[in-house]
Amino acid sequence: MILLDAFRIAVLVVLAAVFQVSAAPQLTPTDSTPDLVLILVVALAVQRGPETAAVAGFGGGLLIDSITGGWIGLSSLLYVCVGWAVGRRLQSDEDAMLAPSGASPIGFQRELAYTVAAAIGVQVGLAALQGLLGEGLPLGFTINHVIIPAVVLTTVFAMPVLPLLQRLLRSRTRIDTARTAPA
């Protein structure tokens, strides 16, 4: 059962990464694309906890960097941080603890809010790291042509994708919420 679940998540990671670099550029009017891997990482952090989200983020980032010829490890680093941060934030969330199996432990709106916050975090982190690596772009261009379009597109795509992921990841509740709190 665990292996099947891991396989299902691995397939989702590969599909998200490939769609992000192959399909999304055709469907968006800007150079930026929606961050589908990020949406998946946030969904996994909510549904499965930070470890699974971080591992998936690491794999997804590795795929994207490899396919597009970017710095290998850069996207992985950011996605691992997102998986950990969202999962960690939810760790103390009482709503998550009480979530029934199959439902989003925190509700769609908050999951979307986490996605938007994570998208901003990843884009700002990416801009900062690219700057440190000597490949930064002018600040105004970065904000107007990279960060804002990417965050907006990610938010728009997250609206239908998050409920879909909720259904696909339905079989198990978050690992760290499987143990209920003592009465």
């Binding site: 591992v55 590795l62 710095w71 490890g73 691992v80 760790q91 919420t177 143990r179």
Partner: peptide, 25 residues
């Protein structure tokens, strides 16, 4: 909510992933 061992395991996993990312970078 989570046991101490689980917390340690989580930190180890995240730490290893971050280290692997930085090494690859």
């Amino acid at each position: 909510l989570i046991g101490k061992n689980r917390l340690i395991r989580r930190r180890v996993i995240i730490g290893l992933l971050l280290a692997a990312s930085l090494t690859l970078l």
